[in-house]
Amino acid sequence: MAVAGNTLLHVEHLTMRFGGLVAVDDLSFDVNEGEITALIGPNGAGKTTVFNCITGFYHPSEGRLGLRHGDAAAWDMLDALTDSGARYRSQRGGTLFLLERMPDYLITHQARVARTFQNIRLFPGMTVLENLLVAQHNRLMRASGYTLFGILGLSSYGAAERAAIDKARAWLERVGLLDRADDPAGELPYGAQRRLEIARAMCTDPVLLCLDEPAAGLNPRESAELNELLLSIRADRGTSVLLIEHDMSVVMEISDHVIVLDYGVKIADGPPRAVRDDAKVIAAYLGVADEEEVAEVEAEVG
């Protein structure tokens, strides 16, 4: 099967079973490079399970999750890589990863997929700055000669740490948390914690940023700020974004592409406007296809 050139993440026949329960059933979709893709669906549709498969926290029961770095021609290696049993393969200017074969930390470290969590997972007892430095662990670890040079106090590590702090400072400025840099993360208000978690994920330099309900619990103003932040992340760095969201104002306003899940099955896939008018989607959200209620939903999402 040919994969389109601008595809960044190619999910194919993804199935996740927990005992007898099929949480995700034969799901296939693509995330395009430089786009914001939204994964929506009613509660319990299996959205977070898809995230957990992509980021390696679950090992899918079946399916293939390809991720490309660099040259689009890398997709030509997909079948060869699958047959080889390796985790990734490089050629000329491109590398192809099979995420289902990688442990979670390598997905972030090598395949450069970062994520946030539905129930925010910061390091509450560490400062905001420390949170962002932990996100740059692997680079700093190399710079500290895997601790050895660092213990001896060699200057190369000092320079790397300063660079890491500068990067953290830049992100803090961007999410408006610079003056809280030395406060413990657990003391921040809820909306700020959400922004910090995004900044922390961005400090790992991802090509794909996966956000699990980033607007949950935010007020309308904070929601609007979030939209701006995500759009600017994409604009400045070309980072692709995959997000799970219930807040339709976020989904409709910023996403380029929407995928709808219901009971682990994909029921719609396309641009936001088309998905919004899809009868199956409306039925899934309401449970019935009642004309009146459909109209209500349309009013709400529009």
């Binding site: 930390y105 972030t108 910061l122 390091f123 509450p124 662990h137 500290s144």
Partner: peptide, 25 residues
């Protein structure tokens, strides 16, 4: 003050978040 020490403390705070940041726990 080194990355390994910060990673230890981060591990104490939240192991899953550490894994999501590319740390080999």
């Amino acid at each position: 003050r080194l990355p390994v020490g910060r990673a230890w403390e981060a591990l104490r705070e939240d192991e899953i978040a550490c894994r999501s940041l590319g740390i080999n726990t």
